[in-house]
Amino acid sequence: WVPTKREEKYGVAFYNYDARGADELSLQIGDTVHILETYEGWYRGYTLRKKSKKGIFPASYIHLKE
């Protein structure tokens, strides 16, 4: 896992994603996520609506905010 280059990196989910394991994070369309790390097509972070739950999710489900 590699920390993100920018201190504040955010994105928005444009697909729903159902977590398949305890380390994964479920997403709903429109969720804003804070991205902490990246690795081979995956991000690690949390949604702003539930900051206490961190997990991994596919990068392809996220539109990055500039």
Rank of each mutant, 00 (worst) to 15 (best):
S26P: 05
L48S: 09
G11E: 03
H63T: 10
L64C: 13
V12S: 02
D18Y: 11
K53Y: 08
Q28A: 09
A22N: 10
S60Q: 13
I62G: 01
V2I: 12
G45E: 01
Y61T: 11
I29C: 10
R20M: 09
D18F: 11
K65M: 15
T38I: 11
R49D: 13
G30F: 03
E40A: 13
K65D: 11
G21V: 05
K54Y: 13
I62H: 00
G11K: 03
T32F: 15
I62F: 01
T32L: 15
Q28C: 13
D23A: 08
A13V: 12
T32K: 12
R49L: 09
D31Q: 05
T47G: 03
G45C: 07
K53D: 08
Y61Q: 05
F57I: 01
E37Y: 07
E7M: 11
K53W: 06
P3H: 03
E66V: 13
E66T: 14
Y43A: 05
D23Q: 09
W1K: 08
R20V: 11
K50W: 10
P3R: 02
E66R: 12
I29S: 06
E7T: 12
A13K: 04
R49P: 13
E8D: 10
E7Q: 10
F14D: 06
T4E: 07
S26W: 04
L64F: 09
A19K: 04
W42A: 00
D23L: 07
P58I: 12
A59K: 14
Y43K: 00
K51P: 15
K5H: 11
Y43D: 01
W42S: 00
L64M: 06
I35D: 00
Y39M: 13
R44A: 05
L48K: 05
I35L: 14
L64E: 04
Y46N: 06
G30M: 02
R20F: 05
L27H: 00
F14T: 13
Y61W: 04
T4C: 15
T4I: 10
W1S: 07
G41P: 00
A13W: 05
Y39C: 14
L48C: 15
T47Q: 09
F14W: 14
G21A: 11
V33A: 01
A19G: 07
D23V: 06
Y61P: 03
L36F: 07
T32E: 15
E24S: 04
L64S: 02
G11T: 03
N16H: 08
W1P: 08
R20I: 09
Y17D: 01
I62C: 08
D23K: 06
R44T: 05
N16W: 07
G11W: 06
F14H: 13
T38Y: 13
G55C: 06
T4A: 15
K54R: 12
I29K: 12
Y10S: 04
L25D: 03
N16R: 12
Y17S: 02
S52M: 10
W42F: 04
V33T: 00
R49Y: 14
K65E: 11
K53C: 08
I29T: 06
Y43M: 08
E66D: 12
P3Q: 05
E40N: 14
E37A: 10
F57W: 03
N16E: 08
D23I: 05
G30W: 06
K5D: 14
L36H: 03
L27V: 02
S52D: 13
I29H: 04
K50A: 13
V33N: 00
S60C: 14
E7L: 10
R20W: 06
R20E: 07
Q28M: 11
L25M: 04
W1Y: 07
H34Q: 06
G30L: 02
L48R: 05
I62L: 02
S26A: 05
A19I: 03
Y17K: 00
Q28K: 14
Y43F: 08
A19C: 06
Y15Q: 15
I56V: 10
R49Q: 11
T47K: 15
V33L: 05
Y15R: 15
E7S: 14
V12D: 02
R20K: 13
Q28W: 07
L64Y: 03
T38R: 14
F14V: 15
L27W: 02
I35M: 14
K54T: 14
Y17V: 03
Y17A: 01
G55M: 03
Y17P: 01
E66S: 14
F14Y: 11
K53V: 12
I35Y: 01
A19D: 02
T38F: 11
R6P: 14
L25I: 14
G55D: 02
T38V: 13
Y43W: 02
L36Y: 06
Y43T: 00
H63G: 07
I29G: 02
V33S: 00
D18A: 11
I35W: 01
A22L: 09
S52L: 08
A59G: 06
L64W: 03
